[in-house]
């Protein structure tokens, strides 16, 4: 921290150099410079960049929590360090237990950054949006009234989707995806971690990759432009390009589910926290489309079977739903 003398004398009167308000200045921590970073998101908490780490062919995510000017510097350091450490510890714990989360590749808590493994693929949100988009078109073709379309979506969507063979495959793929999501969340809770911000944007469908042995050959992670679009909140492209080498065997729903962004994660085994995780996810599903509720039932079904105690979390979820997140407060 620089120390500024509040009472400047007339002799050294220099106009104060304040950064222009529209251009927030964030000096990057050593060794990073803007030249080899690509901005992914600028959240309230962290600046997220894409870059490389350890080798030029290893893509990664750099998360930087810049100092908050409004906070007392001691408090700021304490919080930044505690949060980065908590996130890194949770991620390492998950990896130790075999969960699919980004690996921690490096970090410096004092300077406020963390480097994580790059996860190629699309967000589950993008997958759902694409599905809704496709289905929406299909439903509108033969229907006249908005109401009918809506009812169709609410009640019979699975049947409609299943009309064709292609749709049948899509349906199975979606169901498989939901099952993976349910199990992944269940596993996370089982090992004593709650995500804290479990939205469909924080679930990735990782593109299948070719097998490679560590320490040999070309880049290990597939890089996807979809990811960037999803992370920057843009609309997902309508057509999802598939990795060229894999066109034969890969449809767009193949891959495994990876949970990302553990910035708000906590190590807890409280039913309430677990239920809130599910509730947040449920709301993310229903926000995509009312029809996505059907899909979420499959997530819950698999979650319920995933670990001892999952069933009671589902009961708690019912309470959380009724209560909503918001309590009535005394004024």
């Amino acid at each position: 921290m620089s120390t500024t003398n509040m009472a400047s004398t007339a002799s050294d009167a220099q106009p104060p150099t304040t950064p222009p308000p529209t251009q927030p200045l964030h000096a990057l921590p050593q060794p990073f410079t803007t030249s080899n970073l690509e901005v992914l998101t600028q959240g309230a908490e962290a600046l997220v960049y894409k870059t490389t780490f350890l080798t030029p062919s290893t893509p990664c995510v750099l998360k930087y929590r810049p100092p908050k000017l409004y906070r007392h510097p001691i408090l700021d350091k304490r919080l930044t360090k505690a949060r980065l450490l908590a996130e890194a510890r949770v991620l390492v714990k998950c990896r130790r237990e075999g969960l699919s989360v980004p690996a921690v590749l490096g970090g410096d808590w004092e300077s406020g950054w963390l480097v994580l493994e790059w996860i190629g693929g699309r967000t589950v949100r993008a997958v759902l949006d694409e599905w809704v988009h496709k289905f929406g078109l299909r439903a509108r073709d033969g229907k006249t009234s908005e109401e009918e379309v809506k009812r169709e979506l609410d009640e019979g969507l699975m049947e409609v989707v299943a009309e064709e063979k292609e749709s049948q495959e899509a349906r199975e793929g979606l169901m498989r995806l939901m099952q993976m999501v349910g199990r992944a969340v269940g596993k996370l809770h089982e090992i004593g971690v709650c995500h804290g911000d479990l939205t469909t944007s924080n679930l990735m469908l990782r593109t299948p990759e070719r097998k490679e042995v560590v320490g040999r050959g070309p880049p290990r992670m597939t890089v996807s432009a979809q990811r960037e679009a999803a992370m920057s909140g843009q609309d997902p492209p309508e057509v999802i390009p598939v990795q060229q080498e894999e066109t034969k065997e890969t449809n767009s729903l193949e891959g495994d589910v990876v949970m990302i962004d553990f910035g708000l994660a906590t190590q807890t085994i409280h039913e309430e926290d677990r239920a809130v995780d599910l509730y947040v996810l449920e709301r993310a599903f229903t926000a995509t489309h009312p029809a996505a509720e059907h899909l979420f039932q499959e997530v819950l079904r698999c979650y319920g079977e995933s670990f001892k105690g999952a069933k009671t979390v589902l009961k708690r979820l019912a309470d959380v739903r009724l209560r909503g997140r918001k309590r009535t407060m005394i004024g």
Partner: peptide
């Protein structure tokens, strides 16, 4: 003041 600093940081 704190709120102003935060808001300014966000442009």
């Amino acid at each position: 003041d704190m709120m102003g600093l935060m808001a300014r940081d966000r442009g």
